[in-house]
């Protein structure tokens, strides 16, 4: 395990304490009041314009991906939720990952290290469907797309949600 390391970029260093306080105040969700940013601002004793500007900036530098409703796929009737995993030669992984990540039925697509001999898969694509047949059919689509660039794949279905909360940042050092 040498080259495959956590890709960690230093954008976080561009955040100051006020940004972190805003992140803390919003990570459980935005208040459902007519002026949610004013509400947060008054809780943090900040100016509402400042809060919005900082959130905009965090969006611009990619710390915040989007602001919106986070759907619970399962409750919405997408009962499939299959984590498909693929063993793709490292030299193709980048191109293949970009193709798979662009598919509209893939909600997350990540390259991760293998953990040999127990775990040979390096590409993870979360596929959602109304049932397992639909997920399996979509997995076949990915399999065709990868063709000979795939040395093996599998799908892991979830049988139970054991814990699910939004991102929580604890104890900043």
């Amino acid at each position: 395990m040498s080259e495959l390391n956590i890709k960690y970029d230093n954008d976080a260093l561009l955040l100051d304490d006020v940004d972190y306080r805003i992140i803390h105040a919003t990570q459980k969700g935005l208040p459902r009041t007519p002026q949610p940013y004013h509400f947060i601002a008054s809780e943090l004793e900040l100016d509402a314009g400042d809060v919005m500007q900082r959130i905009q900036r965090m969006q611009d530098i990619g710390v915040i991906r989007r602001i919106g409703a986070v759907p619970n796929h399962y409750a919405l009737g997408f009962h499939g939720n299959g984590m498909t995993v693929w063993d793709v030669p490292d030299e193709y992984a980048h191109d293949v990952g970009a193709q798979v990540g662009a598919l509209d039925f893939v909600s997350h697509c990540y390259l991760r290290p293998r953990h040999l001999p127990d775990w040979p898969y390096n590409l993870f694509a979360m596929v959602h469907g109304r049932d397992r047949d639909e997920v399996n059919a979509k997995m076949e689509n990915i399999s065709e797309l990868l063709g000979s660039q795939c040395r093996g794949h599998s799908v892991l279905y979830s049988s139970r949600i054991l814990k699910k909360t939004g991102l929580r940042i604890t104890e900043r050092r």
Partner: peptide, 22 residues
């Protein structure tokens, strides 16, 4: 309340604030 959305708010990008692993 019906749990169809888990929350309405900001979605943070992994590994931009803090580090994470699966």
């Amino acid at each position: 309340e019906s749990k169809m959305v888990s929350r309405v708010g900001a979605v943070f990008r992994p590994n931009r604030i803090g580090v994470s692993t699966l």
